[in-house]
Design a protein around this nucleic acid. Structure first.
Lengths: 144, 144
DNA sequence: AACAAGCTACCCACTTTTACCCACTAACCG
DNA sequence: CGGTTAGTGGGTAAAAGTGGGTAGCTTGTT
């Protein structure tokens, strides 16, 4: 389970450090430190999947009719941009330019746990999202 | 059951002491002194869950449709920021910067029991909240 | 085909942060 | 009044995060 929110800096080479607690989860629960990083189609951020969760997503997609418009769109945006990354010895991965652009990642990067996956945001986009999520919640009473 | 109101000081390192009565409850009723601390979406304070209560919340959330706007907002604000903390030998936990910011915690911190969970407030925010809660109650007669 | 340029993976070194431990003071209780 | 427990402050070793050099690969060009 990925939980918690961490801010790490991307360096000039485009590398970001995966927060240590997330690396622990990858190793302990998935015993495989590599992740699949891709666009999140619903928000301007990236989403990282452990190998196993990514396979689950893939099989869900292939269960759908392949000529469906939304399935095609999903394949183009999410699946095509997906790439597998193995962190280096320091626990960093290199985010390619196209994904960096998509999430407007520059330096401060927020890693937000989301149970089976985790999200990667630019810090200013994260702050904006957080503010709007909070105001949304304050109106709707969710009784959690 | 967490009850009572206690004020403790956060030190320069960002550590706060969990009031001893709360630690007792954790050990006696949950036999696990670790807690999950996260944002409270409805007020500028933090909320601490014993492990078991946190799991209950998680299962309530995952029972909801995962594409619901408010559920997504809840995940981002509450679940993402949630982190598990085991108190040190003195009974303190380190509150990370993002949560400190959210609740404007600086030094004087109020721990307020809330039955299954407890809240952590900055002392001035607590005072303000208390005043407005009181005036709200004086208008509505709840016959407790 | 050979060479140059750029990129990337890997490695090493440094800085910052955090977890853990110990010691002190203040409050409470008998 | 002494003893015990709660709360506070701070030192230090380990871990996490950061910056950068270099060798080797890929790519593209003459």
């Amino acid at each position: 389970m990925f939980q918690g929110e961490y801010t790490n800096n991307m360096d000039d080479k485009g590398r970001v450090n995966i927060p240590a607690p997330f690396r622990d989860v990858l190793l302990k629960n998935y015993d495989d430190s590599s992740i699949v990083v891709t666009r999140d189609p619903y928000a301007p951020c990236l989403r990282a999947y452990p190998q196993r969760e990514w396979k689950r997503l893939l099989s869900k997609v292939s269960a759908r009719p392949s000529n469906d418009r939304t399935v095609i769109a999903f394949k183009r945006t999410v699946i095509s941009s997906a790439q597998e990354y193995a962190p280096d010895k320091q626990g960093r991965v290199l985010i390619p330019q196209n994904l960096r652009d998509y999430a407007s990642l520059s330096k401060g990067s927020v890693f937000a746990g989301s149970l089976d996956t985790f999200e990667i945001w630019d810090v200013s986009a994260w702050d904006a999202q957080l503010a709007s999520s909070l105001s949304l919640l304050q109106d709707m009473d969710l009784d959690f």
